[in-house]
């Protein structure tokens, strides 16, 4: 999983089966210091409550479909798994 920031939403009224009612968010991937890194992705909101500007962590590929709450297969390849309260850095040495 990686850190990301919700920077927008996507509405796609014409879509394949399985995406009905799925909240789609634009997520900007972040590095471990929460700086933008890489291209934004469109992620399914597995929690249904991730909001604009929130720092989240998301999972990709097949696991994204498993992160979605619907009990049907949701064809997404990125999905938000949790909202980050804090990233505690401790290099330990």
């Amino acid at each position: 999983m990686k850190l990301g920031k919700v920077i927008g939403t996507v509405v796609a009224s014409t879509h394949v089966d399985g995406l009905e009612g799925v909240k789609l968010l634009i997520v900007q991937p972040l590095d471990k210091k929460r700086r933008p890194k890489g291209r934004p992705v469109v992620a399914g909101d597995g929690l249904q409550i991730a909001g604009y500007g929130e720092i989240v962590y998301y999972v990709s590929s097949r696991e994204a479909a498993l992160a979605m709450p619907q009990n049907t297969f949701v064809p997404v390849d990125d999905a938000i798994v949790g909202i980050v309260d804090e990233v505690h850095e401790d290099p330990g040495r």
Binding site: G46, L47, I49, V81, I83, G92
Partner: peptide
């Protein structure tokens, strides 16, 4: 190498 941890109270239930 472990360099920290992520605190998250709102997450997928499994977590």
């Amino acid at each position: 190498r472990v360099v920290g941890n992520v605190v998250s109270t709102v997450s997928n239930p499994l977590y």
